[in-house]
């Protein structure tokens, strides 16, 4: 684990933008990479790839399920398709196709859902993807990634390209705090310990990683040492790092911008139950949100460092 305890958390680009930029780079090196979008290329940032490689870009119109199955066809024929839309549309409208044309035959399709979670703001719940981790993880054979910043997103897009098999990546709309140095190494299925700690572990993904780090800093001031782990790969989940955290800290809080039902938390709980049962609390959503600014929504729906702290205090109180 790194010795680092302080994170500057400077705002970087949105993970969707890091996705779009990396995709264009990847496309330069690998001519098999093709990209599909469903009338949202300016929002998903696949337009960078489109500009550089128009002949390898397929605009599918507002027809997400068709897009997913076309991607599967391209994959059957040896291409490496990335198909992208708002996560809410590609994962939900495309689910049957993800199941039967991607997961089941294990085709080499990469799905990137942008505008994940409630931090998309004003558009409201119809465009907010809050079930995607549950849905994507339920598909056998899929790798499911949930990067927290531009650095991890760039690495994950590259790893996804090299990996042979289905991949789902979630990306956010808002600018995200930079957690990692440019030279950070990432490995599929390996969580990253961001702070050392012995009293409690905070396991977080996506936007909640930065909130977890802020919470840990506050706790440190109170003499409580919190271990923060970033789970950038939700599936396969890092059993080792979770079991170790359960064993060494005896209390775990999981924090995510997703419904608690079917989210990262229940998947962590499964591993905890199978390895070293310990006390747990969960920070996440319990229902659909509403329109509002991203900041207001994150506040109202309890996805701030404050809410992580509340959960930590609760789990520590139970520990006594």
């Amino acid at each position: 684990m790194p010795a680092k305890t302080r994170y500057e958390l400077k705002l970087g680009m949105a993970t969707r933008e890091a996705f779009g930029r990396t995709l264009a780079e990847v496309g330069k090196k690998n001519k098999d990479v093709v990209v599909l979008d469903a009338d949202l290329s300016k929002s998903t940032y696949t337009n960078f790839f489109q500009k550089d490689f128009p002949e390898r870009f397929f605009e599918c119109g507002i027809a997400e399920s068709n897009m997913v199955a076309i991607a599967a066809g391209l994959a059957y024929a040896g291409k490496i398709p990335f198909c992208s839309s708002f996560s809410a549309f590609v994962i939900n409208k495309g689910f049957e196709q993800l199941r039967v044309t991607v997961a089941y035959p294990n085709t080499n399709v990469k799905v990137v859902g942008t505008h994940s979670g409630i931090s998309i703001g004003e558009d409201g719940p119809s465009q907010m993807s809050v079930e995607e981790i549950g849905l994507a993880c339920s598909l056998p054979g899929f790798l499911v990634f949930s990067p927290c910043d531009e650095v991890s997103m760039a690495a994950i897009v590259r790893m996804a390209t090299d990996h042979v098999g289905p991949v789902f990546i979630r990306a956010g709309r808002m600018k995200a705090a930079i957690i990692y140095q440019a030279d950070q190494k990432f490995e599929i299925g390996k969580g990253i310990g961001l702070t050392d700690g012995k009293d409690v572990t905070i396991i977080a993904t996506g936007l909640l990683v930065a909130e977890a780090l802020k919470a840990a800093e506050t706790l440190e001031g109170e003499g409580i040492s919190a271990r923060v782990i970033d789970i950038h790969t939700v599936k396969p989940l890092d059993r080792e790092i979770i079991a170790k955290a359960a064993r060494e800290t005896g209390a775990i809080v999981v924090a995510e911008e997703h419904l608690v039902d079917g989210g990262l938390g229940v998947r962590v709980a499964q591993i905890v139950a199978e390895t070293t049962p310990c006390l747990m609390e969960f920070v996440g959503l319990t229902g659909y949100a509403e329109s509002g600014s991203p900041e207001e929504l994150i506040d109202k729906y309890g996805l701030l460092a404050r809410d992580v702290l509340t959960a930590v205090r609760k789990v520590l109180a139970r520990k006594k």
Binding site: I62, A88, F89, N92, K93, E122, D123, G124, P125, S126, Q127, E290, S291, G292, S293, E296, L297, K300
Partner: peptide
């Protein structure tokens, strides 16, 4: 419109305006 707490949500939402005939926002 589109502000936190407004009945005028970004997309029509029967939870906020029960007299709407349907919630919509995902096309098709």
């Amino acid at each position: 419109l589109r502000k936190l707490g407004s009945i005028y949500q970004g997309h029509p939402d029967v939870r906020f305006i029960p007299t709407l005939d349907a919630s919509t926002g995902s096309l098709g």
